[in-house]
């Protein structure tokens, strides 16, 4: 009698740690891309608002491309073609670059909406008090416009965090890629995908809860 050789082994506790570690990587790539992307998006949004048609023509059209082309295509294109121009980036760095630009493209519209949410007469009032252009922007437009578009921004944050799963196509072992590896080994897709989903939920849910709390406080 010949013994059967099994290529597969069941799900075990170390695999949970493997997933948790991957979840941290998802968190890390998201935090990095969202932070830089939000700052850039804020600047682009301000340019779109102030620069009118000049900015709309240049910055606006470039951002339109990043907003309209599916993220997965952007990732694959960038990862495979960047080395041709001498930019040899690992999957993580490539993911951060594309996710950052993608976030910036989404945030730029949110930011422009925020600036436009502040009535012109209110900005005239702050200027009439002697505030400079930048003081008005910092103390009036940022807090008032920021609150107006905060829910929209949170939407972008949650979206980008989930979309970061697409970086798995480059081979970066974040949550989704880790799940795929485990599924291949354990042949338990239902369990593993449910766990991965639970991890995504655990990352997203506190953000939405926290955001809701802020909105409630501001609504007073």
């Amino acid at each position: 009698m010949q013994e059967t050789i099994t290529f597969f082994s069941g799900f075990s506790t170390p695999d949970l740690w493997f997933l948790a570690d991957a979840a941290l990587k998802t968190l890390w790539i998201s935090v990095l891309s969202i932070s830089i992307g939000t700052v850039l998006g804020g600047i682009f949004g301000w340019m779109l608002h102030e620069g009118k048609w000049m900015a709309a023509l240049t910055v606006g059209s470039i951002l339109d491309i990043f907003r309209s082309v599916p993220l997965i295509i952007q990732l694959v294109l960038f990862y495979n073609f960047a080395p041709m121009v001498g930019l040899s980036l690992d999957p993580f760095a490539s993911g951060v670059v594309i996710l950052t630009i993608y976030t910036a493209a989404l945030v730029s519209n949110v930011a422009r909406g925020g600036i436009e949410a502040v009535p012109v007469s209110m900005r005239k009032a702050s200027r009439s008090l002697g505030m400079s252009y930048w003081q008005d922007l910092r103390h009036i437009v940022l807090p008032i416009g920021g609150r107006a578009v905060f829910p929209a921004w949170i939407g972008v944050v949650l979206g980008v965090m989930k979309d970061s799963a697409l970086v798995s196509v480059l081979g970066y072992v974040e949550l989704l890629k880790a799940s795929q590896i485990l599924i291949t080994r354990t042949q338990e897709p239902f369990l593993i995908l449910a766990l991965a989903g639970a991890f995504y939920f655990a990352l997203s849910y506190p953000i939405s809860r926290y955001a809701a709390k802020f909105e409630q406080r501001w609504a007073q």
Binding site: S121, M122, K124, A125, R127, S128, L129, G130, I144
Partner: peptide, 20 residues
């Protein structure tokens, strides 16, 4: 003008209170 405007208080038709 920012300095000059400190001499000139202005009150608008829309009161423009800062809501935050």
């Amino acid at each position: 003008v920012n300095k000059l405007r400190q001499k000139l208080g202005m009150v608008f038709q829309q009161w423009n209170s800062f809501p935050h």
